[in-house]
């Protein structure tokens, strides 16, 4: 969409140009509308889980802007000749359960005939116009928080190759179906300065967007970044998806890696995620409290993973 002409409107707070997670439009001085859409092909075999993951993924873009989802519409591409009615029912139930868990309502949807099954949501939410969390607000001295472990792309590849155990698959699905909801008390406290969710561009890709947008240099501490244990093993075996390699190649020239960093960690930090965690830049004195709240609210792996260390043009330093 970079080729489309720029649009300007006094109430358009976040549009196409910043590679952000959703669009934001001011309705009143107190309320801005957030809109987003996302759908994809199945990444797990269980249809109910797939529905949950696809819905949690679509809702995530509203959370990444600091917003609260209100309503959602189903998007379904399916061939009724190829997919059993029960399977379809399970996907839609999984999606609806996630929408309800998020405190939102399913209000409609649309389906098209398609031999390749796809499901997702269009989500509408709200946020106070002064509390929009763009990916460009990180400040000097901020602490960086990652709320979920990385490695779901590598695990999904291993799962496709029938190398992952059912326990590993369950662990991966649990990460992907967990909502990226930011507890309301944290949003109101205002200590989060920037947010984005980790998806297809991997941790490095999304961190780089934040570093560039905020005009800063980030320092990441590789040993503190939560990673699914099985993902390391499978990365060593060569089960890295093509998208993750592309991410690494794209980000490499913006990385400064300290001597002695295991090259494997660069693969893991480039791994394309499905509904990965939030990357947050927060005031350093509040950061540990935010991590603890995420751990209490269903993200046990949440951790402090780095700092904003200097002004700059978007460089990521990787230290041990």
């Amino acid at each position: 969409m970079a080729a489309l002409p720029r649009q300007q409107h006094p109430d358009l707070l976040v549009g196409l140009e910043t590679a952000d997670d959703a669009g934001v439009y001011r309705l009143t001085p107190e309320i801005a509308l957030i809109q987003t859409v996302d759908f994809f092909t199945p990444i797990v075999n269980d249809p109910y889980l797939f529905g949950q993951i696809a819905a949690a993924n679509a809702l995530s873009d509203v959370y990444a802007m600091g917003g609260k989802p209100l309503t959602a519409m189903n998007i379904l591409c399916v061939s009724l000749k190829m997919v059993a009615k029960e399977t379809l029912q399970a996907i839609l139930t999984g999606g609806m359960d996630k929408i309800h868990e998020a405190g939102a309502l399913l209000v409609g949807g649309h389906s098209v005939e398609d031999p390749e099954l796809k499901y997702g949501l269009s989500v509408t939410g709200i946020v106070h116009p002064d509390r929009v969390l763009a990916n460009s607000g990180a400040r000097m001295g901020d602490a960086l928080i990652l709320t979920k472990p990385l490695g779901t792309g590598i695990l999904a590849t291993a799962s496709k190759g029938r190398l992952a155990t059912p326990e590993m698959e369950a662990g991966m699905a649990e990460v992907m179906r967990t909502l990226n909801r930011i507890p309301e008390d944290i949003l109101i406290a205002g200590h989060i300065h920037a947010a984005t969710d980790i998806t297809g561009f991997g941790f490095f890709g999304h961190a780089l967007e934040m570093a560039r947008g905020s005009q800063v240099t980030m320092t990441l501490f590789a040993s503190r970044i939560p990673i699914l244990a099985a993902a390391r093993e499978f990365a060593l075996m060569g089960l890295i998806p093509a998208g993750s390699f592309a991410n690494r190649r794209f980000c490499e020239r913006h990385l400064q890696t300290a001597p002695g960093i295991d090259p494997l960690i660069l693969d893991l930090l480039s791994d394309a995620q499905t509904n990965g965690g939030l990357l947050l830049a927060a005031a350093p004195q509040a950061a540990q409290g935010i991590v603890t709240r995420f751990q209490e609210e269903g993200c046990p792996a949440a951790a402090l993973v780095g700092e904003i260390t200097a002004p700059g043009k978007g460089i990521i330093r990787v230290e041990a």
Binding site: A235, L236, M237, G238, L239, P241, F245
Partner: peptide, 15 residues
């Protein structure tokens, strides 16, 4: 016939 496969095959061999 892809870069990705080459990289992954080399890793698999080393492992």
């Amino acid at each position: 016939d892809t870069d990705t496969s080459k990289e992954n095959v080399l890793r698999a061999a080393a492992s």
